[in-house]
Measured scan of single mutants.
Amino acid sequence: MGFKLLSKLLVYLTASIMAIASPLAFSVDSSGEYPTVSEIPVGEVRLYQIADGVWSHIATQSFDGAVYPSNGLIVRDGDELLLIDTAWGAKNTAALLAEIEKQIGLPVTRAVSTHFHDDRVGGVDVLRAAGVATYASPSTRRLAEVEGNEIPTHSLEGLSSSGDAVRFGPVELFYPGAAHSTDNLIVYVPSASVLYGGCAIYELSRTSAGNVADADLAEWPTSIERIQQHYPEAQFVIPGHGLPGGLDLLKHTTNVVKAHTNRSVVE
């Protein structure tokens, strides 16, 4: 069995187990497998329904001669939608809004960016022009300005110390501490036991640490421990890039980060 097929099978099995364990909360999309990078042309966006009122959005972007996937989250909030992270750029984010209108038909009224990198804030200006209120932590807003990236308009308070959590509509926002970046936030959907790890969490097929220019490698494993301790009931975990899975993604990420750190020390 090929690795790609095995990865998709694991996603399907995880979703099936969740649907059985929580039949009222989960209505997993039966329309197909989780979209992969090879299936999404740059400039297009796919939506994948995880649970009743919960979707991931998947886009792709060219970077350094390669094409990478990027995940975000959409959560229903009454007759409105909360968006977590842009679709990595203005063109993708405009396509995301169009796809949401086509498939869901509810307005996106608020959006949260989970850290300051372009795959999370690139497209904020498109959201703002569409009347979406954009939010991020003060740290993310400051770092985005320093980096020359787009800056969300509103500040999220109460997320300055490791372990801080605040309720934001249908989700809980959690600051686990520094990891992929010093400002990275985690998003949890309690009604569906869905954990969105953003770039602080890796997919299972990833074996290298990737972009760690703004990471705190020493603190990252401790931050992941905080996530595990705060959300032990999480059933569906979405990484910032690639295929979702279960809580095993947290341990896998820790292993990859520690291996990278150990290699760096040896070198």
Rank of each mutant, 00 (worst) to 15 (best):
G2I: 07
K4T: 11
S7L: 07
L10W: 08
V11E: 07
L13H: 13
A15M: 10
A21D: 15
A21S: 13
L24G: 10
L24S: 13
F26D: 14
S27F: 11
V28T: 11
D29S: 10
S30A: 14
S30D: 10
S31A: 12
P35E: 07
E39R: 11
V45K: 02
R46P: 05
L47C: 03
Y48K: 11
Q49K: 14
I50W: 08
A51Y: 09
D52S: 11
H57A: 02
Q61G: 06
S62F: 07
S62W: 09
F63W: 08
F63D: 09
D64C: 05
G65I: 07
S70Y: 04
I74S: 04
R76H: 08
G78L: 08
D79K: 09
E80W: 03
L81A: 06
L82D: 01
I84T: 02
I84V: 10
A90Y: 07
A90M: 09
A95S: 11
I100D: 01
G105Q: 11
L106T: 07
P107R: 14
P107D: 08
V108P: 09
T109L: 08
T109D: 05
V112F: 05
V112P: 04
T114I: 00
F116A: 08
F116V: 04
R120N: 00
R120Q: 02
G122A: 10
D125R: 08
V126K: 06
V126A: 08
A133G: 09
S137D: 01
S137N: 08
R141G: 02
A144C: 13
E147Q: 14
N149E: 08
E150K: 06
I151N: 06
I151P: 01
E157V: 12
G158E: 07
G158N: 12
L159D: 01
L159Q: 01
S161K: 13
S161I: 12
S162V: 10
D164V: 07
A165M: 14
V166T: 09
V166R: 10
R167L: 11
F168D: 01
P176L: 03
G177R: 02
T182W: 13
D183F: 01
I186N: 04
P190I: 06
S193G: 13
L195W: 01
Y196D: 01
G197V: 05
E203P: 09
S205H: 08
S205Y: 10
A209K: 09
G210R: 05
N211Y: 15
D214V: 07
A218L: 13
E219F: 06
W220L: 03
P221E: 10
P221F: 05
E225Q: 13
Q228C: 02
P232T: 09
E233I: 09
E233K: 14
H241D: 04
G242V: 04
L243S: 15
P244T: 03
L247H: 14
V257G: 01
A259H: 09
N262Y: 10
R263P: 13
R263L: 13
S264D: 13
V265M: 10
V266K: 12
